[in-house]
Each structure stands twice: as C-alpha cells, then as structure tokens.
C-alpha cells in the first residue's frame, strides 16, 4: 500500500509543531485515500521513546529515522541524498514538508533529483475524486489568486505547506507503530559545506511567523516613539510586534518584523494593524490571519476591507487607551 510521507521539522533535537500539523493533515488524506502515513526524521541523535509515541499519537503509522551528526543543522547535500535513497527504497505517493527555510530548500532539491513536481507553500490539500490525485492549493501573485495544482503523471506528488495552515490531530491516533532505522552510509552525508558558527536567537523571542498574536505598526504611528504602546501591549499579552515595510525602511524596527510580500507571511489568531494603509503587498502577508483588527484614522483606508473589526481614530491614542484598560484588568 502506498504511503503519504511527512518530513519532520526540528529545532535542535525537538520536533517542531509544524510536523504535527502536517501529520494531522496527512492522516486526514490517508483516511480518504485508504493509505498509511509515514514520518521521516533526519536527526543528530536517536529520539526518546516519548518522541516516538508523540509521532504515532499525532498520526504516523511508521517512523523512519536517519541518525547522523551532520543533521545537527540543515545542510542541502546530505539531506537530499538521504531522502532520495529513502524514497527509492519504498516510493511514497505523496511527500509533504513544512515550508520553512530548510523545507523550502531540500524539497526542491529532492524534487529535482526525483524528476517530479513540487507545489510551494500550499494552504489547501485534498484528494481528487476518481483519480486519487493530490489537489494542491496555494496562494500566488501576492495572495491575490489561489491556484490549484496537480502532479498528474509523476510520483511522488510533493508539496510544501505553510506552518500554521493545518491543525494537529484532535485525538490520539495510536500509541505504537513501526520504527525503521535507515542506515546512513558515510558517502551520503559527505559535504563540502562547513558550518563555522551558529548564533541562536534567544529563547522566548518569538518571530512573527510563529506568533499567536501580532500587533503591527505602520506609518500612521507617525513617529518611532509612538511604537511604545505597541511594545507594552505585546509584553502584556505575550504578543509579537510586526511592521509594514515603510517603518522597516524608516529603521524603526528590523526587517525580521516585516509582514508582507517581501517580508513574512503570518497566520496568527489575532492580527492588529495600527496605522497601516492596507497596500496589496502588506495584505498578501497577513490576510489569512484568523481575526484582523484595523486601527486607522481614515475610514476609507483599504485595510478595513480586510478586517473583522475596525477602529477609526488616532492609532497611538487608541492603543494607549487599550493598554490602560488592560492594565486595570491585570490589577483586578
């Protein structure tokens, strides 16, 4: 029976949440298709029993592990050669991986070696009635269109999926499953690339991509000092500060905070856009947020067309009032 594969994403030796999101989706597709789910994990040391159990609970029937020092940090060559070899031993029907900096790099590499198609940054996956083909839906052209893409004649069908698009399985799938050790031959992981240094961004510093709540500022704040209530609010609710390109270009905040076409795509539970006009390039990065709040002085600002609630007025004043009200709430 043909399998649906998920390639695990890790941070250090921990499995990243995007892996469980994909397992959840793969499980759902497997039920439809009548196939099973396998997880491939390339990692520097053998995972704990608990990790295996979580993967089975999360939707995997089978876990394939390749253990080698070279997997400590992602390196293109070793990854694509090992994955290619795994695929050739037991070719799957579908391969899914998170659209992270590493997933977006090894998936195209692997697709090139396998001579098959790859759909980028999917936000929807389904099985086509009749043919059983994977229907891959992705936003394109700045999020203004949704394209549905098929890989009708080539196998495996490959897709990367934006983190936070799907949800992990709601219930426990199974407690145990098959564990397969993939022997890593030295020539597969030989690499001319040398990692000289790794500077980690401190724990707790959540990037906009991983944020549950984003409070984003735009030029309507008028001055960098007026960002203060945004930072204050972010601290109170463990939110992350985002930005439009204009304030990044004005050096009020670093590029890592930029949301939009040339910044990050985000999908928080709540997105607050304060003093942001709603240019298409900004919208492209945040329109799939679950709930959008816009604060703008101009009632005709485009951002209101993309918001669930809109507050019309001075952004700094409104935010300051909000922060004061929240502080009262804390003291209660």
């Amino acid at each position: 029976m043909s399998e649906i594969w998920v390639i695990a994403e890790k941070r250090g030796t921990q499995i990243h949440s995007s892996t469980y999101e994909l397992l959840g989706k793969a499980r759902e597709l497997a039920w439809k298709r009548g196939s099973s789910v396998a997880l491939a994990l390339l990692i520097q040391e053998r995972p704990t029993e608990e990790t295996f159990r979580n993967l089975f609970r999360g939707g995997a029937d089978r876990v394939m592990i390749a253990v080698d020092k070279s997997f400590e940090r992602f390196d293109f060559g070793p990854y694509i050669r090992v994955l290619k070899e795994m695929v050739s031993q037991r070719p799957p029907e579908v391969i899914l991986a998170p659209a992270t900096t590493s997933g977006r790099t090894y998936m195209p590499g692997l697709a090139a070696l396998l001579g098959t198609g790859l759909t980028a940054d999917c936000t929807g996956l389904d099985i086509e009635e009749g043919t059983g083909n994977l229907l891959q839906t992705r936003p394109a052209i700045g999020g203004n269109i949704m394209a549905t893409i098929k890989t009708p004649k080539h196998r495996p069908q490959m897709a990367t999926v934006r983190p936070k698009t799907f949800s992990p399985l709601g219930e426990v799938y199974r407690e145990r499953g098959e564990i397969v050790d993939f022997p890593v031959r030295p020539e597969l992981v030989e690499s001319p690339a040398r990692l000289l240094k790794f500077d980690s961004i401190g724990e707790g510093e959540k990037g906009v991509q991983d944020a549950e709540i984003i409070i984003a500022g735009g030029m309507g704040l008028r001055r960098m000092e007026n960002m203060a209530p945004i930072y204050k609010l972010a601290r109170m609710i463990n939110g992350t500060v985002g930005a439009s390109r204009k304030i990044v270009d004005s050096k009020w905040i670093g590029h890592e905070a930029q949301v939009g076409l040339s910044g990050h795509t985000v999908k928080p539970k709540i997105y607050i856009a304060a003093g942001i006009s709603g240019a298409v390039q900004h919208i492209a990065g945040m329109q799939t947020s679950e709930f959008i709040v816009a604060i703008n002085r101009d009632r005709n600002a485009a951002i209101f067309n993309f918001a669930d609630i809109g507050l019309i007025g001075d952004a700094t004043e409104i935010l300051t009032q909000l922060v004061e009200a929240m502080e009262l709430e804390v003291r209660k």
Partner: peptide, 8 residues
C-alpha cells in the same frame, strides 16, 4: 533561519 543565524 527561523532559530538564528548560521555562518557557512
């Protein structure tokens, strides 16, 4: 990358 900067 997501969790920091690498030098290669």
């Amino acid at each position: 990358v997501e969790d920091g900067r690498e030098t290669w």
